[in-house]
Design a protein around this nucleic acid. Sequence first.
DNA 1: GAAGACATGTAAAATGTTACATGATTGC
DNA 2: GCAATCATGTAACATTTTACATGTCTTC
Lengths: 204, 204
Amino acid sequence: MNTLGYAILSALGRKSYSGYELGKYLENVWPAKHSQIYPMLTKMEEKGFLVHEIVEQVGRPNKKIYSITEKGTEALKKWIAKSPSEQIHRDEFLIKVYSSWLLGEENSAKLVHDRIAKLDESIASLSDKITEMEQMEELETTSKDFGRYLLFSRKFRLAKEEKDWCQWVLGLLKNKKVNFTVFCLAFTGRFNLLLDGLPWIALI
Amino acid sequence: MNTLGYAILSALGRKSYSGYELGKYLENVWPAKHSQIYPMLTKMEEKGFLVHEIVEQVGRPNKKIYSITEKGTEALKKWIAKSPSEQIHRDEFLIKVYSSWLLGEENSAKLVHDRIAKLDESIASLSDKITEMEQMEELETTSKDFGRYLLFSRKFRLAKEEKDWCQWVLGLLKNKKVNFTVFCLAFTGRFNLLLDGLPWIALI
DNA sequence: GAAGACATGTAAAATGTTACATGATTGC
DNA sequence: GCAATCATGTAACATTTTACATGTCTTC
């Protein structure tokens, strides 16, 4: 089985879902279209990793709700123990930024502004999800929801970091020179390496 | 032509490369194996976007150095003007973190520690690359090297943010509860939204 | 009345990875 | 002597995307 299969198992380990619902969850960890998900679910059920029950609905199509089996959980556990493969990150935006010298400063700035707008949207929606999780009475590290919480807070932090970088780029585009900033970046890089391991609170 | 093709054009826009060298550059924006790159270069040359010249070498195989043509530059310019597609991010590590409740706290911590070790490696090598760029006398926004600089500083910042998140996760795993942290995260989320647009320097 | 969410599936095309092929040089 | 780097290419396989199919309900 491939990573998509294990991503599905990891989702069903926490909660039973239909293929349609899985599609939305998977966006966060391993994007896949429904045309890939449905055949995969069939294959996984044949192997005994999953079972489904049909939930009849009024006014909309019936669903197949999939649940993980003992065999599925065992397979997932074994897979988790192996060290993960390298992450894949593909971003057309970065290729376009790389070619910004062809684009001119105004158009480059527009490219970055558009990205900021998209990031603001996802920051807002992630903020809402985290607020929801705030409502939970007890969220311990052994809870099935703990991984979900880690995931969303990571997405949130990453989006904010990306936005900060975008704003830094806009600043460079305005000032047209970068020498001083290059210096600062390299400096903070080294500075942070020194600080590593020290509790930040001690610095205040 | 697909994104890989435009990624190649963007690289050759800055500097001429052999297929082998392109493979290494592409790792940063659009990872591709040589088995995908070589046929793509042939196809692109047939279309008139590229030309190559053979560089004979002693003691090692000859290279084909590819250069972008006028037609290639035009194609790249047109493509850059279109708004970029969504970024793709696939990471087995995150699926494993999501399933950390199955793993137990010790094994979860090991998973995160291993990630930190990998991040430290890339932080170190990116730091070196940025130091190299520091040497450059003039790095203006219209320079062909400007995009390259933006790219590496983004990679650097992202890796550092990822490491911070990892360390935060390790802290949670130790304390076993997250309620207070959830609160802080959501709070800083809102706080930062308030500060947006204000120059940070004004706060000192 | 059009668009989008809900819901599941198949087929074809594009994209990406692994394996097969070859071969010299350099550093451990 | 073994692994890694340099260097290019093809073939087979796996994965992913786009298009084809169908149909109801809800919101603008």
